[in-house]
Design a protein around this nucleic acid. Sequence first.
DNA 1: ATTTATTTTTAGGGTTGACTAAATAATTCT
DNA 2: AGAATTATTTAGTCAACCCTAAAAATAAAT
Lengths: 219, 219
Amino acid sequence: MPTLSEENYLKAIFHLGYGHSDGVSTNAIAYKMDTKASSATDMVKKLAEKQLVNYKKYQGAKLTEQGRQAAVAVIRKHRLWETFLVEKLNFSWDEVHQVAEQLEHVESEKLIDELDAYLDFPKFDPHGHPIPDKNGHIHKTEKLKLSQAPIPNTYICVGVNDSSAEFLQYLDKIGIALGTPIKVLSKEVFDESLTISIGGGQVHISKLVASNLYVNFNH
Amino acid sequence: MPTLSEENYLKAIFHLGYGHSDGVSTNAIAYKMDTKASSATDMVKKLAEKQLVNYKKYQGAKLTEQGRQAAVAVIRKHRLWETFLVEKLNFSWDEVHQVAEQLEHVESEKLIDELDAYLDFPKFDPHGHPIPDKNGHIHKTEKLKLSQAPIPNTYICVGVNDSSAEFLQYLDKIGIALGTPIKVLSKEVFDESLTISIGGGQVHISKLVASNLYVNFNH
DNA sequence: ATTTATTTTTAGGGTTGACTAAATAATTCT
DNA sequence: AGAATTATTTAGTCAACCCTAAAAATAAAT
Ligand SMILES: [Mn+2]
Ligand SMILES: [Mn+2]
Ligand SMILES: [Mn+2]
Ligand SMILES: [Mn+2]
């Protein structure tokens, strides 16, 4: 079994490599893990020895199938715990990440299976992220970044890209939660900021904010 | 904050020193922690530096008030998690210890407070052990070891001293759970084994078993 | 095509928490 | 008391994971 630290690296490599076919650079890993490039190199070597990643010097790391399974298992635990915290323990969506970051490393297959059942097999976590199933399969859903959505149109917020407390609290403040209808009124050509309407009120959001919001068509 | 390893040592010292007024020997700590005496000495020194224990060479370790608070906080978390696993996730009392051993180290005050509330502020864990409150106070209850209980008489099982899976599964097998009435019929003078009656059936248990069972008068 | 800048790796350490083996203190036995 | 046994500490290593500084490789700029 991977150590706690290895699990965190695997998760980082998974997220950084998602969608891309080339290796994840040690620099990118180090940045995401809030550590130094030399530490990332060391860890990547260790993961390679354990057959969890493929690694060639100067070419970055790519998860093996075994590594992907391990990464997805941790992500599954992370998202189930986040769901538990919000659904059962009155946590808000901006409070769960830090705690789930610890809970995700608890080792017990029964624990996670029972938790899954207790939560009634949720498909998405409190940030709209899909919860991988027991076999490591991640259900793909249609969604697009609000920054790339055609306007004018009305969408439904289905997820966030950034799960930081700062961003989520900002969304709380302007009245956006999962399921909130967002009517996009106009886009400023200069900075691609958007004027949107939420529950009657009108709000102006930056491109950065819009690019961290996932929406779906309101069909 | 204590590290994970320090927390485990603090807990061990708390349990070993419970009731006794002299220091806990490094040997005893090592045995309980399943490690070597030299490792225990190292750790005790570190805990002493952090003011969590008082330690003088060759005189064992005693928790300071600060150390006791830290130990009890971990025990509180351990027992709340065990309760959660049994009450909500269909774990049996012989399956919870190992998992709680990991969960007890998750750091989040809100988590443990909410868990406490979610479980409706339980007073005892699945093994009949008292759950310390938020202030570190442990509610004392009357109880005695079945091996020391006057006979003949009828008692109620209120707890176990040994929480190992082997012992708990043995109790399952002979039909003893928390709350089970136990009628003690006779004690063998030779080995102090007991003949008891549980729900109609008659069972013979060793002194060792009886000394690991806590009972209360059936009043 | 060089030179310059950036990225990545290597070399050398530090810390935590283990271990073995050896030394020393405390205890028990005769 | 003196000797033998046991308990405890010290000394010296080790592995995991991190660090800084320097070297080497790659990428970018002139
Ligand atoms: Mn983590
Ligand atoms: Mn999430
Ligand atoms: Mn533990
Ligand atoms: Mn217990």
